[in-house]
C-alpha cells in the first residue's frame, strides 16, 4: 500500500472527506514550494499534487499557465523536480502526486521517470493529456514500483468508457467537474453530484473532484457524493499574493480551513 492508499483507507475509516491541494513546483521559487507544502500539511491537506510545468499546458487556464511559465523560467525541470520531492520526503510523509504533461515525461524516458519517481518518494502520477489507451507503458512501469497512475474522468465520458478508465486507474479517480480547463470558478456545474454517484457505482476507488473548485460553498455541495475535492488555481493565486509576506502561513491556512470546515464526516 502506498501513501495514497494508506491515506484513503484512513479517511474511509474515519469517515472523512479528502482535501487535495495542487501547487506548481517552483512557483514562484523552490523555497516557496517547500514552505507551502508544510503549511498545507499543517492545515490538514490530505494529498498534495505537485505540478511539473510544461510549456504548452492545454488543460490549464490562465492561472496555472502563468505559474508554469514562471517556474520554467526559474529553471524547473524533471531533475530539479525529483530533487525537490526527495528533499520534501526527509520531513513529510504526506502523499505526493506529480501532475505534468506527457512530453516532459516522454523526453525524460518513461522507465527512468518511474525509477526516479519511486526513488524520490512520489506516490502517484497524473498526466492530463495521457488517456489510458496511450498510458500502457507508463502504467506498467509505475505499477511495478507501487506508484498509482491516476486518470481523469470528464462530464462527457460515457459509462462504458468510465469502466475502462477505472480499470486502468489506481489511487483515486480524478473527476473533472466541467468541460473546460483548470481555473477557479464560483458555481458547481449541474450534474456533478449525480455523475460522481454514477462513477462510484463502477469503482471502489475514491472519487475526488477538481477543475474549477475553489469555494467552501462548492466544496460543501460536491462532497455530498464525492470523497473529496481538489483545489489548485485558488491556491496558486494566494501563493502569488502572499508568498513573500509574513501573512503567508496565516492566509493559506485560513483558506484551507475554510474548505475543511464545511466538509463533514
Amino acid at each position: 500500500m502506498n501513501r495514497i492508499e494508506q491515506k484513503s483507507s484512513w479517511l474511509k475509516k474515519n469517515r472523512k472527506k479528502a482535501c487535495i491541494a495542487y501547487i506548481t513546483a517552483g512557483f514562484p521559487n523552490l523555497k516557496t514550494t517547500k514552505t507551502a507544502v508544510k503549511i498545507l500539511e499543517e492545515n490538514g491537506v490530505d494529498i498534495i499534487e505537485l505540478g511539473m510545468p510544461f510549456s504548452d499546458p492545454i488543460a490549464d487556464g490562465p492561472t496555472i499557465q502563468y505559474a508554469s511559465g514562471v517556474a520554467l523560467k526559474n529553471g524547473m525541470n524533471m531533475h530539479v523536480f525529483f530533487d525537490l520531492v526527495g528533499e520534501l520526503r526527509k520531513t513529510t510523509q504526506i502523499p505526493l502526486v506529480i501532475m505534468s504533461y506527457y512530453n516532459p515525461i516522454f523526453k525524460f524516458g518513461v522507465k527512468r521517470f518511474a525509477l526516479e519517481a519511486a526513488k524520490s518518494g512520489l506516490d502517484g502520477v497524473i498526466v492530463p493529456d495521457l488517456p489510458p489507451e496511450e498510458a500502457v507503458e507508463l502504467n506498467d512501469q509505475l505499477r511495478a514500483r507501487g506508484i498509482s497512475e491516476i486518470f481523469l474522468v470528464s462530464p462527457v465520458t460515457a459509462a462504458e468508457r468510465v469502466k475502462k478508465i477505472v480499470s486502468a486507474a489506481s489511487g483515486f479517480v480524478y473527476y473533472v467537474s466541467l468541460t473546460g480547463v483548470t481555473g477557479a470558478r464560483n458555481v458547481v456545474p449541474s450534474g456533478v453530484i449525480g455523475q460522481v454517484q454514477a462513477i462510484k457505482r463502477l469503482t471502489t476507488l475514491p472519487v475526488y473532484v477538481g477543475f474549477g473548485v475553489s469555494t467552501a460553498g462548492q466544496a460543501k455541495s460536491i462532497v455530498k457524493t464525492a470523497d473529496g475535492i481538489i483545489v489548485g488555481s485558488a491556491i496558486i493565486k494566494l501563493i502569488e499574493r502572499y508568498h513573500s509576506s509574513r501573512l503567508f502561513a496565516k492566509k493559506l491556512g485560513a483558506y484551507i480551513n475554510s474548505l475543511s470546515r464545511v466538509m463533514p464526516y
Binding site: 492545454i58 506527457y102 495521457l130 488517456p131 470528464s154 462527457v156 460515457a158 468508457r161 478508465i165 473546460g180
Partner: peptide, 9 residues
Amino acid sequence: KFTPETLST
C-alpha cells in the same frame, strides 16, 4: 491520441 479525457469522446 494524446488529449485531455474531455476530448476522447
